[in-house]
């Protein structure tokens, strides 16, 4: 079975000549299906750049990147291919929920399967199921503005999971939440990873959730260093 994410020697250079900046300098990473991995690093270390490369938003300068064994960017991927990749195989959870304010909760979640071509009724059914799995099924008809911060983040997670992508990229998903809610979000991500076999990368600064990860990648100056759970325990 292929790893969900496998990257090696990934580099990303911004600019050219003297103004060139290497944001990533040969990153290696492997994440297995059903695994939740932390990605930790100070500001400017390259976290967001790595996330954007993994999210098929920016193209790396060099290196190899494979999702579920399929190499990305190797065969002249087009914009439409990357868009379909993001829609069908990658889920995103952001620091803020970034829900669409003019759609209700159900349609915020159902939007993804609709974009993938699923009929509205079926997409809404699937969205309601996902909202119920995340304990916000009772808020399905509510408007986004009527939800609490924690509920909004659960809806955002439901949106990321609704197409059942093999990979979820979470960019500081607990930053705006208190400790209790932050731990709840991580618990939910872990449950979903177990339930759907989704590989999840969580970028975070949040000290209170760091101990929950079995594996952590530290990123510093564009390079990653893996820290295994056993090592952290020691």
């Amino acid at each position: 079975m292929h790893p969900a994410i496998e990257i090696s020697g990934l580099t990303k250079r911004y600019g050219e000549g003297d103004a060139a900046v290497d944001a990533l300098k040969g990153v290696d990473m492997i994440v297995q299906p059903g695994e939740v991995v932390g990605l930790i690093g100070p500001s400017g270390s390259g976290k967001s750049t790595l996330l954007k490369c993994l999210g098929a938003v920016i193209e790396p300068t060099a290196g190899r990147m494979a999702l579920a064994g399929e190499a990305i960017y190797d065969h002249g991927w087009k914009v439409a291919d990357l868009r379909a990749l993001r829609r069908d195989r990658i889920g995103f959870v952001f620091q803020a929920p970034y829900l669409i304010p003019f759609l209700d909760v159900t349609d915020n979640v159902a939007l993804l399967p609709m974009l993938a071509g699923m009929p509205n009724g079926k997409a809404r059914d699937r969205a309601r199921q996902m909202l119920a799995a995340l304990d916000v099924g009772h808020r399905a008809q509510a408007q986004v503005a009527q939800l609490s911060g924690g509920e909004q983040q659960r809806v955002a997670i439901a949106r990321a999971l609704v197409n059942q992508p093999p990979i979820i990229l979470a960019d500081e998903p607990t930053a705006p939440l208190d400790s209790e809610r932050a731990l709840t979000v991580i618990r939910i991500l872990n449950e979903m990873a177990q339930r759907f076999g989704t590989a999840i990368i969580v970028v975070t600064h949040d000290e209170k959730i760091i101990p929950t990860f079995r594996r952590i990648y530290h990123i510093r100056d564009g390079r990653t260093y893996e820290e295994a759970g056993e090592a952290r325990a020691a």
């Binding site: 868009r83 995103f92 952001f94 974009l115």
Partner: peptide
Amino acid sequence: REIAVLKLIGARNRT
């Protein structure tokens, strides 16, 4: 921000 999210989650330009 909403448009960026829409594009990120796979909305087509024509949408």
